[in-house]
């Protein structure tokens, strides 16, 4: 009895530690006052209207959306390709473990360091800070994430199914589309969702590679120079978006991810 009570108290404290700051941000978002401050003098939705009406926020949101979509497409295609190369057909080549570790390397490097290294690289390649530099920079992190998640999906995939396809005269490409792809789809969908979120709220890389016009950067600038509760309102909407994506991810991983190989 007593230990259950203690456990409950502990869990409550952890939740408060994790979510407390978020609750303050949410409270500030509904403030009726002019400045960011806690507790808010009164409640209103005016800052939500203000955030939604703010042209800078809207443009930045659109820009971040396109950057994230492009980075997601590139990362998922390349990451899936890497996972296929590492596991399928001739995938069991010597030094395979090294190649896999090498692909994962960008995840081990702090974002700021990566950004610092990518900016001169991009310029050397004739790419000025802007849309494509940001997209490719985000893909540097998105590709290893995607490869990792698709590799995990391949761990459940039975290569004997490729022989079954071949025995029916189904060629390798068609077999990949009709058999392999549907079976690793949970991995691909989670890769897409993770990469999208990774890109959408990225600060460290965008700081170097964009023109300061992605949504997280605009919010940061806003906090530095104006700091109205509009930034909290925008954050609350972003949290809702991420939450929706996480719920989707959970569904994908629990639902279609549990297909078992026959036999």
């Amino acid at each position: 009895m007593r230990s259950a009570w203690l456990l409950g108290a502990f869990v409550a404290l952890v939740l408060l530690f994790l979510l407390g700051p978020l609750l303050i941000a949410i409270a500030v978002a509904f403030s009726s006052g002019e400045r960011i401050g806690f507790p808010p003098p009164g409640l209103s939705l005016r800052w939500f209207a203000d955030a939604l009406g703010n042209e800078q926020f809207r443009d930045a949101a659109a820009r971040s959306l396109w950057v994230a979509l492009a980075a997601t497409v590139i990362s998922v295609v390349a990451g899936t390709g890497a996972a296929v190369a590492l596991t399928q057909g001739q995938g069991r080549f010597a030094g395979r473990a090294w190649v896999q570790a090498f692909i994962m390397l960008p995840l081990a490097i702090p974002g700021i360091v990566l950004g610092l290294a990518l900016l001169p690289t991009a310029i050397m390649l004739g790419l000025r800070p802007g849309f494509w530099a940001t997209v490719l920079g985000h893909a540097v992190v998105g590709i290893p994430y995607s490869a990792y998640l698709v590799l995990a999906a391949f761990a459940q995939y039975d290569p004997a199914l490729d022989r079954a396809s071949a025995s029916l005269g189904v060629g390798p490409w068609r077999s990949f589309l009709r058999v392999t792809l549907p079976l690793i789809r949970p991995g691909i969908v989670s890769a897409a969702i993770c990469t999208f979120l990774l890109s959408f709220d990225n600060v460290a890389l965008s700081l170097f590679l964009s023109r300061g016009d992605t949504l997280p950067l605009r919010l940061m600038q806003h906090i530095q120079f104006t700091a109205t509760p509009a930034v909290a309102a925008a954050s609350v909407m972003l949290v809702l978006l991420s939450l929706g994506a996480m719920l989707m991810l959970g569904r994908v991983l629990r639902g279609r991810g549990t297909i078992r190989i026959a036999g």
Partner: peptide, 22 residues
């Protein structure tokens, strides 16, 4: 592609069935 075409002259039944689980 031609080999795939030729291969289907043979049916093949596997020890572990190898049905497509989806």
């Amino acid at each position: 592609r031609e080999l795939s075409q030729q291969r289907r002259l043979f049916g093949f039944v596997f020890q572990r069935f190898n049905l497509f689980p989806h």
